[in-house]
Design a protein around this nucleic acid. Structure first.
Lengths: 326, 326
DNA sequence: CTGAAAGCGCTTACAG
DNA sequence: CTGAAAGCGCTTACAG
């Protein structure tokens, strides 16, 4: 069924013509400038409504130099932790009348770099990077064009960009403390990641194990069935995985191997994603303050826009969430 | 550490001045117009590169009337099915040099309506709606401003908007056929949703059960432990949930109740999300062609932009994915 | 092959 | 209290 062709949308000039005043006056009236006579204002607003006038954000952006757009760069949309961060950034942005432009890069450096460029060309007022895969030099270059805040960790501090992340070392320590309090001594850490958050969690694990006088059973491997078998050979009674997704893998393999969790093997994750509540046994895990991460990221962007010029790195306290798996 | 203040980015005028030519010529040269002398072109391109010039998409949008932005409206980011659709739309959009602006609405009608407005004000070239919660009149109004395509179903066809979705009735029939082939006769359908996709799956289930001469065991309830207990009292041997998320709930409650899946109870989901592979036993489910959904949505938008004026509704064939749970 | 001019839809001094 | 003008950074006829 053919529908009516799209009508040209009315502009300020149309409203001005219909109201019999100048464009400037319409602009002033619509923005609520108090130098406009109340009667005139009401009449103009009425005409605008009636015409269905909506200001062009594009024109406004060109004029003002601010787009009210926040770019969000994310490695991939398949890890719930990342999408949950995106949601929290969007909530925070929306509270300030900003919109989120999303770019995901399939965990591929070249593509991520391109997408960053694309967002900058779009004129975003700031960039929230939720991916440790964006090369440092890309971040630095981006920061020359717009404020950049990293949600999570970079390998080393990158000059000119802000960051907000949870304290991964501390989170790992909370896990180890919980497991030792439950009587575990053979506690393995399965973590094949070379990403900054992964390394920090491994470091936190090692430090906590050392502090407890226990042997380091960190394994730099993916959470596959072979890895699990090797751990069992090693009399491991508890596994701390580097995140919820991999903890679920461990859980799956344990079930497949006929183990009871947590009786035969305790399993702990990290991130407290939707997965953690969804699987059985429900996952004991570490909760990053997601909403705070998003809100702070947006706030840091605004501070930069308002002129702050020194780098800020915020670190949030993680919290252990105890469920059935450990 | 204070960093260098953000430098003003170079404009066409800066490049023109540096190259000693007019703005128009720079524009022509950079866009690869063949009416520019090769030597001049190369020189201009060189100067532009060296200055780090990047065209302002905002200015271009204002001039051209196209923003290269695709708006995506999604109910919420917590159902993996929806985020996977967003990823597929973004992939498709990016292949055409378009970016995705994301708006999620927490499954709240008023908020969704606002977000749609916001996207339109931004000047998106089209809107992909991945939410059945956006009121029809909002869709109709939106379609007057930009092409709109619904990924999924509306309660009734909405004039002026395109749609692409999988055949939910057919998907439900595939499930019933699979279960009957496995010898099940007491097959329940747990589906408390009044959304169009939910209703269509229920209808497909009923029709297939009737065709097989089996009693209708549809339950319009949420997948909670009480519902499960009631089903077991009813001698149900297989449960078809309305989607993967709810199938996981059923799985969880079954495990909690000490049942073996699929020996004591077979469980089937819908959507083939990441969850389906993640849980144990892995979920038998129905796969919608996600990548195709996203690609077709973007293609339908482009067709509208290219002048198509009649409504198109595409329906894709679903496919059963058999795993361990049924 | 190149340049001057107009215009996309706004906002903001600047006059009156 | 209101209007005319300039300008944000582009692109596109139109001249030459």
């Amino acid at each position: 069924m053919p529908s009516a062709p799209r009508p040209a949308r009315p502009t300020l000039r149309d409203v001005a013509a219909a109201a019999g005043v100048s464009k400037s006056l319409v602009s002033l009236a619509l923005r609520g400038d108090d130098g406009v006579a109340p009667g005139t204002r009401d009449r103009i607003v009425g005409v605008a409504d009636q015409l269905g006038y909506r200001p062009s954000l594009t024109a406004r952006t060109l004029k003002e130099g601010r787009s009210m757009l926040v770019g969000v760069v994310i490695s991939s949309l398949d890890n719930p932790y990342h999408t949950e961060i995106v949601a929290s950034v969007e909530d925070a942005a929306e509270r300030h009348g900003q919109s989120v432009v999303l770019a995901h890069g399939s965990r591929e450096r070249g593509r991520l770099a391109e997408r960053v460029q694309q967002l900058l060309d779009l004129g975003v007022d700031g960039l929230v990077v939720v991916s440790s895969w964006v090369p440092d030099d890309v971040l630095v270059a981006a920061a020359r064009r717009a404020p950049v805040v990293m949600v999570g960790r970079t390998a080393r501090p990158v000059s000119g960009i802000d960051s907000v992340n949870n304290d991964d070392e501390r989170g790992a320590a909370l896990v180890v403390q919980h497991l030792t309090a439950r009587g575990h001594e053979r506690i393995a850490h399965v973590n094949g990641s070379r990403r900054p958050a992964g390394l920090a969690r491994a470091a936190g694990y090692r430090a906590a194990m050392a502090a407890a006088g226990l042997s380091d059973l960190a394994r730099v491997v993916p959470p596959d069935p072979a890895a699990l078998a090797a751990l069992l050979d090693d009399d491991v009674t508890a596994v701390f995985a580097r995140n919820d997704v991999e903890a679920c893998d461990v859980l799956d393999h344990a079930v497949d191997a006929g183990l009871r969790v947590p009786a035969d093997l305790a399993v702990v994750g990290y991130d407290d994603t939707v997965l953690a509540r969804r699987v059985r046994p429900a996952l004991t895990t570490v909760q990053q303050q997601r909403d705070v991460l998003g809100a702070r990221a947006v706030a840091l962007l605004r501070e930069r826009l308002d002129g702050r010029n020194d780098d800020v790195h915020e670190v949030l306290e993680p919290r252990l969430v105890v469920r059935a798996s450990a």
